[in-house]
Design a protein around this nucleic acid. Sequence first.
DNA 1: AATACTGGCGCC
DNA 2: AAAGGGCGCCAGTATT
Length: 531
Amino acid sequence: MRIALDPGPEGGPVRVQRLDERGAPLAPPAELAGPLDVVALEREHAPRWVFARQRSYRELVRAGVDVARAHDVELVEGLLVAAAGRFGHPHGLAAAAARLHGREPEPDPRAADPDDRLALFDPTPPPDELADLVAVHAAQQSALAAGPAGMRLLAAAESAAALVAEEMTAAGLPWRADVHDELLTGLLGRRPALGGRPPRLAALADEVRAAFGGRPVNPDSPADVLRAFARAGHELETTRSWELRRVEHPAVEPLLAYKELARLHSAHGWSWLRTWVRDGRFRPEYVVGGVVSGRWATRGGGALQIPRSLRGAVRADPGWRLVVADAAQLEPRVLAALSGDHALAPGEDDLYTALAATEFGDDRGKAKLALLSAMYGGSGGEAGQLLGVLRRRFPAAMAFVDGAARDGEEGRLVRSHLGRTCPPARPGHERPDRARARGRFTRNFVVQATAAEWALVLLAELRGRLRAAASPAVPVFFQHDEVVLHAPAEAAQDAAAAVRAAAETAGLRLFGSSPVRFPMQVRIVEGYDQR
DNA sequence: AATACTGGCGCC
DNA sequence: AAAGGGCGCCAGTATT
C-alpha cells in the first residue's frame, strides 16, 4: 500500500489518502488527529509514504515519527522531466500538476517558497496539495513502470535519501564548541572582538607589508596583492597559491600563511561556531539532488567543506563512538564497473597503490593523478603522459569516458548508470573551447553521477539495516562517499558491519554480478580526526 | 544600501 | 608538478 501525505499548513490537520501501487486511490482523503496516527498507519500497513518534497517529512521527524519507505514526488519529477529531455521545466508539485492537466503557464515553485519571508504576510492559506500529490504520483508511477528498472531503483533510493537527510539534520553532527575554540585559538591566537582580526592574522599581514617595503597591502584583495608584486618586479596572472609558490619573494611565505588562516577564520571561525553549533550539534540542511550529478548539496554552514584542521571538534558523546566509513576510491571503481574494465579494480586493495606498483614506480600520487585526470578530463602537463599509460592498460575504461566526452561535445544526451540525465549544454557550445568544456563535464558526469547513485543506494540500504536491527546507531553526516554514524560504544561494531553490508548490497543493486568490489574503510573513533 | 559578480580556496 | 569535474562560502569589487 501507498499513502499520500500532505502535512498542510502549520498547526492544521495532516491529510492522507490510501493508494494502490499504481497510485490509484483506495479510499477518500482523510484527516489525521496527529503524528501518532501516522505511527499507527505505519505499523498496520508498512506503506510507502508519498510526500510532495523533502520538507514534508521534516515535521514528522521532529515529532519523532519514523517511516520505513517513501516516494518524494518533487525529486522523482526532476528525474523524470530530465529523462524525457524536458529540461528547464520546473519540477515542483504545483508545476507538475499544471503540466499534467495541461494548464499554462506552469507556476514557478520559487514563488511559493515556504521560507519566503514575504509569505508570512500572505493572507491566502496554502492550497490543499493532496489532490495534486495523488495525481502527479499516479502519473509518475506509470512513467516509472514504462521505463527502465534503473529509474525505479533511482527513484526509491533518492526518496530514501531524502528521509536520511532530514533525519541527519534532526540528529545533528556532535560538535564540541570548546574544542573548536581551542583549535582556533591555537592557530589564530585569542579570539578577537566581534569583527576584529585575530592576532596571528594581524601579525602575518604586518609581515607581508614589511616584505613589500612597508607599503600597505591588503592581503585580502587579490588586485592589491597583484599590484604589490608587480611593483616588486613579479608580473602575476592571479594570486592563486600554486602560482604564488613559484615566486621568489619574502612576502610569499607570510602571504600564503595569511590566506590559509584567513580562510579558516572567515569560513569556519568563531562566527561560524556561533551561527551553526547549538547544544553540541552542527545541523546543516542537506539538499538531496542539489547537484546536477545527483550529489547532495547543503544550505548553510559549508557542511561539505569542514576543514581537516577542525575535525577534532567533531567528538562522540561520552560512552558513544563515531563510526566513520568512506568508500575507498569510489569513482575509479565505479568506472571499472560501468565500463566492464575489471582490470582497473581487481580486488579490495588500494587501487592507486596497486597501479603505482606496476606502472608508476610506486608513486601513488602519480597513479592517483592519472586516474583522476581520466575522469575529470585533465590533459595538461604531466597528466597527458600518465594518461597514455592508462590507455594502454585500461582501454575499455578509457573508451568509456572518452565516449561520454564525445557524446557531450557533439551534443548528445548523457546519462548515469541508473538513468539520471545530464542537463544539456548552455548556449555557446558551438565554440570549440566550449564544446571541449562540455566534453569534460559529461566525461565526469557519467562517473560522478553513478558514484552518487551508488552512495544513495548505500544510504537507503544502511537505513533499512539499522531500522531492521533496531540499532541505536544514527547516521549524522554524509559527504559524497563518506558516512558518519553516532553510536553507543557497544553498538559501534554492529553499525560498522551494517555499513559494509550496505556497501556490498549497493554494488549488487547497481551492477549485479560485476566482480568489482566497493570496500568501505571504516574506523571506530571518538574524534573525527582520529585514524 | 542592496545586489551581483569574481577570485580564491575548502571539501569530495 | 600542474591546474581537469562538482559544489558553497567569504571578502573584495563593480553595478545599480
